[in-house]
Amino acid sequence: MPAPEGFAYDVRGDEVVISHHGRRATVLRGRAAARFLADVEDGDGDTDQELMARVTGNYRRGNERTAKDHPRNSGR
């Protein structure tokens, strides 16, 4: 699975805005923003990308195609 890329964050007052390829993905406030900033300061660039992917929920789990083709999901 390829590493996530294209994420960036911007601190605006007490908010952290996370974007993916220039489009806003999520906004963190309060404790979540503070925890995110602490984690980013401790990590490196690759880890930051993975962290932002997890926070936004924008990452693949590897089973999307299998689940899509399952008979139980045929009517969806």
Rank of each mutant, 00 (worst) to 15 (best):
residue 1 M to C: 15
residue 3 A to R: 15
residue 3 A to N: 15
residue 4 P to R: 11
residue 4 P to G: 11
residue 7 F to R: 05
residue 8 A to G: 08
residue 9 Y to Q: 02
residue 11 V to G: 08
residue 12 R to P: 08
residue 15 E to Y: 03
residue 15 E to R: 02
residue 16 V to W: 08
residue 17 V to D: 06
residue 18 I to Y: 03
residue 18 I to T: 03
residue 18 I to S: 02
residue 18 I to E: 03
residue 19 S to D: 04
residue 19 S to W: 04
residue 20 H to T: 05
residue 26 T to A: 07
residue 29 R to A: 01
residue 29 R to T: 03
residue 30 G to P: 08
residue 30 G to D: 11
residue 32 A to T: 03
residue 33 A to P: 05
residue 33 A to I: 04
residue 35 R to N: 08
residue 36 F to G: 01
residue 37 L to A: 06
residue 38 A to V: 12
residue 38 A to P: 07
residue 38 A to Q: 13
residue 38 A to W: 13
residue 39 D to N: 01
residue 42 D to H: 08
residue 43 G to Q: 08
residue 43 G to T: 12
residue 45 G to H: 04
residue 46 D to W: 12
residue 47 T to N: 06
residue 49 Q to F: 10
residue 49 Q to S: 14
residue 50 E to H: 05
residue 51 L to Q: 05
residue 51 L to T: 13
residue 52 M to H: 06
residue 54 R to T: 09
residue 54 R to L: 12
residue 54 R to A: 14
residue 59 Y to K: 00
residue 60 R to F: 06
residue 61 R to A: 03
residue 62 G to T: 05
residue 62 G to W: 10
residue 65 R to F: 11
residue 67 A to H: 00
residue 68 K to W: 03
residue 70 H to C: 00
residue 72 R to S: 09
residue 73 N to K: 10
residue 74 S to Y: 06
residue 74 S to D: 01
residue 75 G to F: 14
residue 76 R to S: 13
